[in-house]
Amino acid sequence: MENITALGGDVYEIDTRMAGFSGITAGYLILSDRPCLVETGTSTSAPVVRDALHHLGVGPDDLATVVVTHIHLDHAGGVGDIARYFPSADIVVHEKGARHLADPSRLMASARMVWGDRLDTLFGELSPTEASRIRALGDTGAVDLGNGRTLASHYSPGHAKHHVGLIDSSTGDLYVGDAAGVYLPQTGDLRPVTPPPDFDLDTALNSIALFQALAPERLLFSHYGPVQEVEDILERSAEELKIWVDLTRQAKSEGMDLDHAVAMVRDRTRGRYTALQADDETAEQFELLSGAPSNVAGILHWLDRVAP
């Protein structure tokens, strides 16, 4: 199947084809003794992911675990559907996100407020998962991949208060979710993801420092794909956060409303990203994943809390 890429170490990247796009959201299958899916993608992606797992020999009762880095709909929107397709799998999530997988009503209502009618085409509807199948992680935890291999969980809020990073004891792969930003392999661009209401700069920088301390062999981005230049990318991730915060703080100090702040930050950062000088489709893809309005709104929300 053309949406499956073998990454070595029994790890397979699955393009979950969010909203029909390629190269936007990745799920990862660890085909160990106890097969584990990291990230489900959206609800509308669930059949794509199911078919990829079946193609890789993982039948309905073979999947042991589904782990999500956090409960945003581009990462976990398909959890309820995947749980139904693979009835033997445990569903693993940080304890701050667990109740929203069991009862997604509040999460879906707030997503509807943000996205409006676009919600249905971009994400679909997160279906509930039986509470008995959900395993909640604390600040650290581990998923048994079989044969002595584990996927260790490390609490990494900043992007979202229910976010974890996951490191594979066998490969040294670190699944970074959104805590290190969005990486675009076509152009090598990296941009932060700082949506409201949870973004907090110090917490986000501490999460990146934690990732550096874990000394991973490789970073696996949910958006998008594997990156070998671990130290360089994590340093860039911290630098990008500081630049966006500094510019947004300047806009706020000049009394700009959200629209003017977004326009200013977008204009001042445009030259940093090759994708925005590329073809329209690549630029649209980048903006969908790390939209300036959402990023600036999240930073302003944080600034209002820490420096009203």
Rank of each mutant, 00 (worst) to 15 (best):
N3I: 12
A6V: 11
G9P: 12
Y12L: 05
I14G: 02
T16V: 12
G20K: 02
S22L: 15
I24D: 12
L29F: 05
D33R: 01
E39T: 07
T42C: 03
R50Y: 14
D51F: 13
G59C: 11
G59H: 15
D61V: 12
G78R: 03
G78Q: 09
P87L: 14
V93C: 00
H94L: 08
E95I: 13
G97S: 05
R99M: 08
A102Y: 14
A102P: 14
S105W: 10
S105R: 01
M113W: 13
R118A: 06
T121V: 15
T121M: 15
I134G: 01
A136K: 00
S170N: 13
D173Y: 08
G177Q: 01
D178I: 00
Y183I: 00
Y183W: 09
L184V: 13
Q186H: 13
N206K: 07
S222D: 00
E229M: 06
V230T: 05
D232Q: 12
E240M: 05
W244I: 08
V245D: 13
Q250K: 01
A251F: 12
S253Q: 12
S253C: 08
G255T: 13
A261M: 15
V262T: 03
T269K: 06
Q285A: 09
F286Y: 11
A292M: 15
P293M: 07
N295R: 04
H301I: 09
